[in-house]
Design a protein around this nucleic acid. Sequence first.
DNA 1: GGATTATTTTGAACATGTTCAATATGAAAG
DNA 2: CTTTCATATTGAACATGTTCAAAATAATCC
Lengths: 223, 223
Amino acid sequence: MTTTKIRSTPRAQDTRRRIYEAALELFREQGFEQTTMRDIARKADVALGAAYYYFTSKEAIVLDFYHEVQQGNDDAIMEAMQGQRKLKDRLRCVLEKRLESLAPNRKFCDALFRHAPDSKDPLSPFSEETRPIRERAMEHLRIAVEGSDAKVSADLKPQLPYLLWLYQMGLILFWIYDRSPSQARTQRLMEKSLGLLITLIRLAGLPLMRPLRRTVLELLETV
Amino acid sequence: MTTTKIRSTPRAQDTRRRIYEAALELFREQGFEQTTMRDIARKADVALGAAYYYFTSKEAIVLDFYHEVQQGNDDAIMEAMQGQRKLKDRLRCVLEKRLESLAPNRKFCDALFRHAPDSKDPLSPFSEETRPIRERAMEHLRIAVEGSDAKVSADLKPQLPYLLWLYQMGLILFWIYDRSPSQARTQRLMEKSLGLLITLIRLAGLPLMRPLRRTVLELLETV
DNA sequence: GGATTATTTTGAACATGTTCAATATGAAAG
DNA sequence: CTTTCATATTGAACATGTTCAAAATAATCC
């Protein structure tokens, strides 16, 4: 990670951790925007500059958090998928676990999408720098497909994880800004869109759809 | 518009205009981020505060620009569509004219999407405040469909302008960050995606697709 | 243990978006 | 022409993300 210092004494690790945790707590309470780097430093009992010694920017803290969450949820996702064979159920596992793990910190997840469209920005989900995170997420989705009983046409299969990842990011984005109680709308959207997705994947397998499928794949090539 | 002062003397209008034009020129030269409100004020020969007397924020200047561009291109779009009957061609007209009108200022259009996902933000393309702009754009797309020889199933028709608008916004976003020479990739993407779009609309008309179409429309209801 | 070097910590300084109280300007009224 | 009042303009002040040179601390070497 760009934001992680490799050489560091245990004491430094501790300071870093203190800053990280102070930040998350404040973000959780007041949101990302409302929280000041000065607030964070004060709460962590360090000088302002220390925060920047350990994190390249305010947003980098959130990225670290995202990275950690993903790591911590690796096993949970795999386990949840164990019993499931149907693609829809397997995908739902991945999506639900992902949202679940972000949930306590939903309030500041919007920071993750701040620089999203610019793939040159190191903090964008599409950037080179965040590739490891992205690929790990895609790997889960690949496994969800692989371990299911769904038939996927051979030419679509290699692109599917990326497509599903896009879908997942879209859903997360919707969830972040979903103001309905308990994000019920996201839940509904997930059910409906999962159903649609499965139908589409199934339809895409029909011989009749071959030209259409080809067009979609070509399109992907361009993007 | 929130950013427009209604009561104002000709002199004020002139000052406003001066600030606006200084801003656009600087944005064009150095991009949105790089340009300082102080730069703008200096170039317009006014004090810093004056800029904020006329515009609620730096981004509001860009929004004004977008508004103006849209207005100025109304006729051009309608004219361009005149001769065309095929839906694909008519849509291409709308998209191309839109990009064309933004092109000289492509460099700072990214500011338009800065607050996009938060529909509560006044500057978001999805916000209540930008509704007039959005509806005007959707109207163009509605006309593009209406005046074409394409058959659209009755239940899809009312939602189509919104869907097309989303599509258009996506394309603009891609275009803004398209680093290929002359944005050739956007051009390719447009052709391919337009083809896909037409096919989808056509397919959606088949009786066989009725349940699928219903699902999509339900999905839209949720969003 | 003292000197040297590397790491960590500090806080002042900077840049910039934004606010606002004070002032200047010009139009309307008397 | 002076007074009055709304409008327009000013620039200082503020908040906050970020940088950086200097100081403090810890680790390493002789």
